[in-house]
Design a binder for these strands. Structure first.
Length: 490
RNA sequence: CGGGGUGUAGCGUAGCCCGGUAUCGCGCCACAUUUGGGAUGUGGAGGUCGUAGGUUCGAAUCCUGCCACCCCGACCA
């Protein structure tokens, strides 16, 4: 397997191969950019699901499931929403196939649907159509529901992990009695995402709000977390939207308030997707492959035995079984790779490629000395340590690795975060080291679009922690009261 | 949909200009020697040369149509 510099997303393809492959759908030219998630990749997604789902439950949410198909008429009820998604919808028009007489299978034109069904690109419309029947009184609120699902967006260009035609995600959809409560929910879920990204994925993120131009179709306000990849490009890692009363009005969802008045319900929606796996790869990987943070890794410790005879193997097995038990008590996931079809060196390389944080190698020599070889993936260092107290040692090491991976990503971001005060400086940084560029902007969509046309950089967000600061727009020279973050993005 | 490029074994490729039935590497299978960083040797299996047609005694190679895929742009979690 070739090894290369991982400076561009395309170069990550060899690590992607451990997790996903492009779906082979060549018979139908229009369907491309779908992915097959391999077992190891799916195990990572399951870890994400488990951790996020727990947080959702802790914050009062419940899971539910809504249909894959959305009648076209639902979809068109919210004007901005339909405009935003209309150009990327898969549409079901028929419900039956038939044999055309020559043995060829064709669509049965007699089985044309009265009303076309849209394969959900997101579920706001069908969920709000359902909520109408659930809500009558303020006593029915809030509704705090999440759905784990797949969605389809027929993008003109796809890219494995970052923009596949079909992807897995979770979408939270909540209904509230007041604007304040809905905004608080929007912000709370953004915090859940940010905390997850930083503490679990070890990917530092900027919390911010989107400009009007980059806002979700149908939202009054879009909050986001923005991460920085190792090639200097930004990646939107999660969004949380304050939808106002737009969907309640479109789907006629009203409730009677404490005061006895009939009012429209306030809404939020928020989601993260399998794109997070792309973020994980591009934030931490090196030339040896994936680097998984211990809190997320499906396998935290891999043990590789080195032996020549059956007697040696049996002796090592006894030791490993005991170690495995001790680690499992500490909730550490272990893989004992005692395959006799591969040699140790091959296994070392393979588990490094898969990003397993800690490797224990133990052979006859170690068994004599009462030692093992302990190797860490993040620093690629190894040392010989005592078998005694090994489980505790590993437990601590996993924490150290988690922190180190985060710190490394944080340092990288700090060195790729530049304040600029002129357009020339802006372009120079953008073409040079890249990363986030903090500068003044006049607040108009027109300026934003012109900067994008000229430089391909977009406003990633207006950071939540941006200070009030008088300045002038680097592009137009007009006054500005705070800095925004620009970057080239995926 | 515009601009560029590519289709040969599971993967990556040579051959094409100048026509004679396909090269090499990885991987796979068997055996032997190996096993503390991606083993070595010997033997073996595996190919509608994207597809349809044309030229020719003969096409991976020349000609025409079609199809697919990749990269760039519009779009985007």
């Amino acid at each position: 397997m070739s090894k290369g510099i991982t400076s561009r997303a395309e170069d990550y393809s060899q690590w992607y191969n451990e997790l996903v492959i492009k779906a082979d759908l060549a018979e139908n030219s229009a369907v491309r950019g779908c992915m097959v998630i391999k077992p190891y990749g799916y195990a990572i997604w399951e870890r994400m699901q488990a951790i996020l789902d727990k947080r959702f439950k802790e914050t009062g949410h419940s899971n539910a499931y809504f249909p894959l198909f959305i009648p076209k008429s639902f979809f068109s009820k919210e004007a901005a929403h339909v405009e935003g998604f209309a150009t990327e919808c898969a549409v079901v028009t028929h419900y039956r196939l038939k044999n055309d007489g020559t043995g060829k299978i064709v669509v049965d034109e007699d089985a044309k649907l009265e009303e076309e069904l849209i394969v959900r690109p997101t579920s706001e419309t069908i969920i709000w159509n359902t909520y109408r029947g659930w809500i009558e009184s303020y006593r029915d609120l809030p509704i705090l529901v999440n759905q784990w699902a797949n969605v389809v967006r027929w993008e003109m260009r796809t890219r494995l992990f970052l923009r596949t035609a079909e992807f897995l995600w979770q979408e939270g959809h909540t209904a509230h009695a007041t604007s304040e409560e809905a905004i608080a929910e929007t912000e709370r879920m953004l915090d859940v995402y940010a905390e997850f990204a930083e503490n679990i994925l070890a990917v530092p993120v900027v919390r911010g709000r989107k400009t009007e131009n980059e806002r979700f179709a149908g939202a009054l306000d879009t909050y986001c977390i923005e991460a920085l990849m190792q090639d200097g490009k930004a990646l939107q890692a999660g969004t949380s939207h304050f939808l106002g009363q737009n969907f309640a009005k479109a789907f006629d969802v009203k409730f009677t308030s404490k005061e006895g008045k009939l009012e429209h319900v306030w809404a939020t929606s928020w989601g993260v997707s399998t794109r997070l796996m792309g973020a994980l790869i591009m934030a931490h990987s090196d030339d040896q492959g994936l680097v998984l943070p211990p809190k997320l890794a499906p396998i935290q410790v891999v043990i590789v035995p080195i032996f020549k005879t059956e007697e040696e193997k049996a002796q090592i097995d006894t030791f490993v079984n005991q170690l495995t038990d001790e680690l499992k008590i500490k909730n550490i996931s272990v893989k004992y790779d005692d395959r006799d079809t591969q040699r140790p060196g091959f296994k070392f390389a393979e588990w490094e490629l898969k990003g397993v944080p800690v490797r224990v190698a133990v052979g006859a020599r170690d068994m004599q000395n009462g030692t093992v070889e302990l190797a860490r993936r993040d620093t690629q260092t190894k040392e010989t340590v005592a078998q005694e107290g090994l489980a505790e040692n590993i437990e601590q090491l996993l924490q150290v690795i988690q922190e180190n991976i985060y710190q490394k990503a944080l340092d990288f971001r700090a060195s790729h975060f530049t304040e600029v005060n002129s357009y020339d400086e802006f372009k120079e940084v953008l073409e040079g080291k890249g990363g986030f560029i903090s500068c003044h902007w006049d607040g108009t969509t027109e300026t934003e679009k012109r900067v994008k046309e000229e430089t391909k950089a977009t406003i990633r967000c207006i950071p939540l922690d941006a200070k009030e600061e008088e300045g002038v727009c680097i592009f137009t020279g007009k006054p500005s009261s705070r800095r925004v973050l620009f970057a080239k993005a995926y």
